[in-house]
Nucleic acid binder design. Structure first.
Length: 424
RNA sequence: GGAGAGGUGGCCGAGCGGUUGAAGGCAGCUGCCUGCUAAGCAGUUGUAGGGUUUAUGCUCUACCGAGGGUUCGAAUCCCUCCCUCUCCGCCA
């Protein structure tokens, strides 16, 4: 959520920056409601002041056994008016809040302006494309042939966009989760978190998935709970409605969760394979920090995510998303894209964003420096990494001509020493 | 699932429907005192939203789990919901 005071004082600028995201955003309506609200507040608060004063007087008169009929009668009217005003104000506030919740974050000044991904900017390319002296297969064929991914039976169990990992496939996924968590917690200083996978709606408003993107979420029937689409939701909300001592910042968490997404509107895209599933594993990195440090922390977090790819010897590039390609809540986003020989293209494997105070304002996560006013923290998060897609990258990049797959050396302590996955 | 108890400020803990943003204690901060520390004394210490001010500030309103209601007036009465704790049952 944006700062209403900032909008008030910088109408033109806010309007211009929002317009770079594509779509129309009506700031004047916001300001209109805000003005009305403040006008009404002034009136009702004057009435309330009067009521408070008179009510005290009534109390005193009664104590002295004096007559207070007239005052009580007058206050009956005043109270009625107050009720009407309050009602009007709360309607206004609801409308205003709904509008405010629907406005996306302002892009940071360093974000390339453009309407879609064609304006994205490649920051760096790391490693080189692996060379094969045969035609590399995609992970679907590799996984099925090796008997480590069973898409057909996954369909029987759960339908399209689900996976069933077996044998070395299941172990590889588990190994990757542990590998990632160990590096982030032991070497990068993150605190491990294992949050609930079912979370209530308040938290989804906090991080920005609600109210706008409900169609992407799995809701539990009869409850206020949703399945987490990313650990970002529970982990960022750990400190919802808290005031954190500045000395405790930066807080950094690493969390594994399965992620559940409806993938509405992606019909026909990546229908096969592990790329786009209703359920996938992800290790997420989340930071809460001060406004002064947030952009530096975004760089660090992105580097932390990249480290996993480096250790696995995977070729990737880092891209800054353009204003039109960024997610709703982000002020700046780096996508990390890994090279997939089976598709001969880079695919997103991590998305690292600084949300500035956009989520913190929604979730009311604040901090206090001694002797200063409370301020909203800045929140940052990124995948570190998407586990399923990492598995895809390993299968496709480390395949041999006979369809077997070499396990990257860094991962072998986690695979019980297994060096190669072969067809049985 | 059954039975009971309870949710008040950073923490503990009072609170008759009226001057209570909230006694008292602890912790914190600021002075005084003191060779230093401790003790002692005095003062001070919440959040949000308005208004006003160049600013420190001043002022108003709201907030005692959440939301409704009764009343001139509610932390205090009524209703609904949420959460926590204890006992029993069940269970990984």
């Amino acid at each position: 959520m944006l700062d209403i005071k900032y909008i008030r004082e910088n109408e033109v600028e806010v309007s211009e920056r929002l317009s770079t995201r594509g779509g129309e955003f009506d700031i004047s309506q916001v300001l209109n409601l805000d003005k009305k609200r403040r006008d009404l507040l002034k009136e009702v608060e004057a009435l309330k002041e009067r009521r408070n004063k008179v009510s005290t007087e009534v109390g005193e008169l009664k104590k002295e056994k004096k007559d207070a009929k007239d005052l009580i009668a007058e206050m009956g009217l005043v109270s009625g008016k107050i009720k009407e005003f309050d009602k009007e104000i709360s309607t206004l506030e609801e409308d205003l809040k709904a509008l405010m919740l629907s406005l996306p974050n302002l892009p940071h000044e360093s974000v390339p302006v453009g309407s879609d991904e064609s304006a994205n900017k490649v920051e760096r390319v790391v490693g080189t494309e692996p060379v094969f002296d045969f035609e590399p297969k995609d992970h679907i064929e590799l996984g099925e042939t090796l008997g480590i991914i069973d898409f057909e039976r996954a369909g029987k169990l759960s339908g399209a966009r689900f996976s069933l990992m077996l044998g070395a496939g299941a172990m590889l996924e588990r190994a990757l989760i542990n590998f990632m968590l160990d590096i982030h917690t032991q070497e990068h200083g993150y605190t491990e978190a294992l949050p609930p996978f079912l979370v209530k709606s308040d938290s989804f408003f906090g991080t920005g998935q609600l109210p706008k993107f409900e169609e992407d979420l799995f809701k539990i029937e009869g409850l206020d709970h949703y399945l987490v689409p990313t650990a970002e939701v529970p982990v960022t909300n750990i400190h919802r409605e808290e005031i954190i001592d500045e000395a405790e910042l930066t807080k950094a968490y690493a969390a594994y969760t399965p992620c559940f997404r409806k993938e509405a509107g992606s019909y026909g895209k990546d229908v096969k394979g592990l790329i786009r599933l209703h359920q996938f594993s992800k290790v997420e990195l989340v930071k809460l920090t001060t406004p002064e440090n947030s952009y530096e922390e975004l760089e660090k977090l992105t580097t932390n995510a990249e480290e996993i790819l480096k250790r696995l010897g995977l070729h990737y590039q880092v891209v800054t998303l353009s204003s039109g390609d960024m997610g709703f809540s982000a002020a700046k986003t780096y996508d990390i894209e890994v090279w997939l020989p089976g598709q001969k293209t880079f695919r997103e494997i991590s998305s690292c964003s600084n949300f500035e105070d956009f989520q913190a304002r929604r979730a009311s996560i604040r901090f206090r420096k001694k002797g200063e006013k409370t301020r909203f923290v800045h929140t940052i998060n990124g995948s570190g990494l998407a586990v399923g897609r990492t598995l895809v990258a390993i299968l496709e990049n480390y395949q041999e001509e006979d369809g077997s797959v070499i396990i990257p050396e860094a991962l072998r302590p986690y695979t019980g020493g297994l060096e190669k996955i072969e067809k049985k």
